[in-house]
Write a protein that binds this DNA or RNA. Structure first.
Length: 292
DNA sequence: ATATTAATTCTCC
DNA sequence: GGAGAATTAATAT
């Protein structure tokens, strides 16, 4: 008996909504030029506009119309423009814009280089479990020091996701621990619960360069975005945007380390390890979290 | 407007 | 060393 009771009440009641959200995003991405109407989309998906409206609002805190608005290129450009703007009243981000405060207050992290990992961490035990999330099934991986991995799987793709993540830590011992990762999963997807009292502890395992890039990502506030070259400049290597892109793509703790807030200079979403659709979904969802 | 090219930095094999 | 990557700016269709 694996204590399924804990699992039952985990996470978002909205876990199943992502499937619908995903289809909508794919639909509008297909020909975003024509700005399909709500009726068009609901007809395509074979459900009523009312149902679509309801599900969306529950999922994102945004009406479908506002959501469509939020995933346009225009909106992405606006995110890039919010450098020093008054984001401060967004309760979540209070204190985050001060340099470095984030690590102390909400997310504590420690970095582990591949060298450290090899010598000291070869016996490292990583426990993992699959949990529903606003963005589909999430693969949550943790060491006793904190969250070390977060990935996503489409339906039926769990094994693939696990393999993808496992490859990153060849020496580690993986243990399936569904119950033990459940509360962590809950915390991860309720960013409002991250606080000084209960910071989310994460462990960044990567090269110096990668860790620097991921730390830079952690400093991007909710509801804002940076270009790859912004990040490159921030870590003191202005011409390394391409390398930054590669490092962002290797981010092992997606969502928590907000790699979805890195955009191309034009505002285009240039790539995402777990699928561009998910990146769009995260940006749209975050727009809703701001209280919009 | 969209496609191709060159410059660029870091990783991995 | 060489290829590839979630880039970008410049150049050519």
């Amino acid at each position: 008996m694996n204590m399924p009771a804990i699992l039952e009440r985990d996470i978002t009641p909205t876990g199943n909504d992502y499937d619908l959200v995903r289809q909508v995003i794919e639909r509008i991405s297909l020909d975003y030029r024509s700005q399909p109407s709500l009726e068009d989309i609901s007809a395509d998906l074979g459900l009523s506009p009312a149902r679509l409206q309801k599900t969306f609002t529950r999922w994102a805190g945004l009406t479908p119309k506002a959501f469509l608005q939020a995933v346009t290129l225009d909106h992405a450009r606006r995110l890039l423009g919010t450098e020093g703007l008054p984001l401060l009243d967004a309760s979540l981000e209070l204190g985050l814009s001060g340099p470095g405060r984030l690590h102390d207050l909400f997310v504590t992290h420690e970095a582990m280089s591949p060298g450290d990992f090899k010598s000291g961490g070869s016996g490292l035990v990583i426990r993992y479990g699959f949990h529903s999330s606003p963005f589909g099934t999430a693969l949550v991986m943790t060491t006793d020091r904190g969250l070390c991995g977060l990935g996503f799987a489409d339906p039926g793709g769990e094994a693939e996701a696990l393999e993808d993540m496992a490859k990153r830590w060849p020496g580690a011992k993986l243990e399936h621990d569904q119950a033990g990762t459940a509360s962590l999963a809950t915390q991860v997807f309720a960013p409002g619960s991250w606080s000084a009292d209960r910071p989310l502890r994460i462990v960044l395992i990567g090269t110096d360069f990668q860790v620097k890039v991921w730390e830079a990502l952690l400093r991007i506030p909710l509801g804002s975005a940076r270009t790859y070259s912004d990040v490159a400049t921030e870590i003191g290597k202005p011409s390394a945007s391409r390398a930054v892109g590669a490092a962002v793509g290797r981010n092992p703790i997606s969502f928590v380390v907000p790699c979805h807030r890195a955009l191309g200079k034009s505002g285009a979403l240039t790539g995402y390890h777990w699928g561009l659709t998910r990146k769009r979904a995260m940006l749209g969802w975050e727009a809703g979290q701001l209280g919009g």
